[in-house]
Amino acid sequence: MIGFVIRRLISAVLVLFVISVAVVALFTYGPSDPAQAMCPEPKCTAERQDAIRDALNLDAPIQVQYAEYMSGIVNGRQIAFGSEAYDCDAPCFGVSFIYRVNVWDDIKDRIGPTVSVAVGAGATILLIGVPIGMFAARRRGSAADKAVIGATLVIESIPYYLFVLLAFLYLAAGAGIFPQEGYHPLTDSPLKWAWGLLLPWLALGLVNSSKYARFTRGSMIEAFNQDYVRTARSKGLAESRIVNKHALRAAVVPIVTIFGIDFGSLLTGTIFTELIFGIPGLGLRALNAVGQSDLPVIEATTLISALIIVITNLLVDLFYSVLDPRVRLG
């Protein structure tokens, strides 16, 4: 077990290393010139931009720039923009070109809203998708089963941003059933927090649950055809116990695997949901940064997203050994 965790951690660190190198390289060699992004041509002369490049140390070899960036995350560093210099405290992901603030100070408050959306939406996905899939699997071939399959296909073929937008326009802005203002911190008022996020949760949950409904249905039907379900039946177990204990237990393993991946990507920010509902999350911040060519913010959100995905994948792998006793970690 410990050997497995160590090996898995090493590979996680390697993945993060490769991504961080890519991120730093993107800053230096990417299509967007940092000096141009920071101070566009009419405002700054070519000489001024050269000075900025010089101050950012862009001509230094990549390994030197990488070392500077990483040391900044651990120790903090001073960042000079031409004549101005900013103290960027650890963890320093650079200073925003646009807002001239430490990127970490900007981003750290955005993690809470994004996690709030992800956790609620993840729970909604499972609570809607899995029971519907089980329902359809038990009645496979029936009209109800076909109706479920049809409905999931229809929902899945609606673009997700359109679905979220329609939900917002009709249920929040139009009918006013749900509040429009979106996000309140959990620590302020749990009730306001949940109430404000309910519609984003439901919208995201419903759209994504269609995939889980079909996936659960497939896994359950596969489990029903297994010999051990026949054994359970021949022991005289009631049908509900066969479904909810024996078949579901087997079907849950592949569902967890897929959910781990999806939950990781929810945690890195749901751009459209945050945009439409005005939730100040990571996705929205990354979107704005891309629009403004705010390279330090893009770097930071990419790195943090990568970290989140690596961690969720690691957790899924560890959880797998709990779910399947045949997986020996060692």
Partner: peptide
């Protein structure tokens, strides 16, 4: 019939690996 299964009539199967639930 369900109550009789396993109590009056029991069955053992060909492949005991697949006939037992791997997770219990």
């Amino acid at each position: 019939m369900r109550k009789r299964r396993g109590r009056d009539v029991a069955m053992i199967f060909q492949d005991p690996l697949s006939a037992m639930h791997p997770y219990y």
